[in-house]
Design a protein around this nucleic acid. Structure first.
Lengths: 160, 160
DNA sequence: TCCTAACTATTTGATAACCTAAGTATAAAC
DNA sequence: GTTTATACTTAGGTTATCAAATAGTTAGGA
């Protein structure tokens, strides 16, 4: 592997190399995932919508603020995302009886079915793309993603 | 580490675990990166615009099709992204004299300066988030990202 | 009790990213 | 020279995103 000569103003620690790679690779992977989810034909939801479904499935009765925090977006953004899911009858949204400021979100049966179907399809598609890599490489990738998840999930809460 | 009971229809190979993690972690990281780039105040560009600048910087005289392929989007999308950069005088777009169907894209001086400034800022911000991790973890992350980049870059070309 | 402050959610208005389908202009092929 | 293919743009539509303004609900204190 050849060493690159980097500009003198750019330091070259491992963290910097990671940062560089994250800024290149993450958007690339994101785009492929998005394209695949769109390719599934029939009834589909966007990536943010999919993530909202995942959160509501894991936290029945969740509030809008919970969705917003999980997605890392502002409340208005989460509101419109959820609103689209409600209009498509994939999510139920009722006022929380105890706290009437809040809404309680749940998956409808149709929402649950669609989510389960999309999730396994998306996983299969991504797994197919990973099939070319060696088992050792994949173990490394899995470990690294766990590290990233921890770092960015914490920071997302601190910052956002 | 507790073992989860997974639904019988969901296999549990390393590739599947990776797929699951990718679908969870990549959007999360993406969101943090986007939020940070927006946070920089002053004059900023979006993530796709930033990636377009990076491609043009590395490939002076690049065509629109080149940008589209690098971003993994359709030609019309790349066209509007570039158009916004041209209107902001960050990118120059002239017809290629040899192939007048094509356009030749270059960074303007202002575009080059903005790009350099944003890149180092973005890298610094991401690197700061990585600072909590051990050097060993970061080396693993760097290696894993290289693997992912290879897999998804190839596949992006095959599919898209 | 009432008033205010804080919280939760939505609406509004703006910019941007994305797609498909349809156009324009140039080059190549026959 | 007509057709076909290529490179890009335009048009029309959906979605995501934000900040600012709005409306309803709760809680705490005067």
């Amino acid at each position: 592997m050849a060493l690159h000569v980097v500009s003198r103003s750019e330091p070259s620690t491992t963290a910097d190399r990671c940062a560089r790679e994250i800024l290149e690779t993450v958007p690339l992977v994101m785009r492929v995932v998005r394209a695949e989810m769109r390719r599934q034909g029939a009834q589909v939801v966007s990536v943010p919508q999919f993530r909202a479904l995942a959160f509501v499935e894991r936290h029945p009765g969740a509030s809008l603020a919970g969705v917003a925090e999980h997605l890392g977006v502002t409340a208005p953004t989460a509101s419109t995302i959820v609103d689209r899911l409600v209009r498509r009858r994939l999510v139920g949204r009722v006022p929380d009886p105890a706290e009437r400021r809040r809404v309680a979100l749940t998956l409808t049966p149709a929402g649950g079915r669609l989510f389960a179907r999309m999730r396994s399809k998306a996983r299969r598609q991504v797994a197919m793309r990973l099939a070319r890599a060696s088992a050792a490489d994949l173990r490394k990738v899995a470990g690294a993603l766990a590290v990233l998840d921890r770092l960015f999930r914490e920071e997302a809460r601190i910052i956002g």
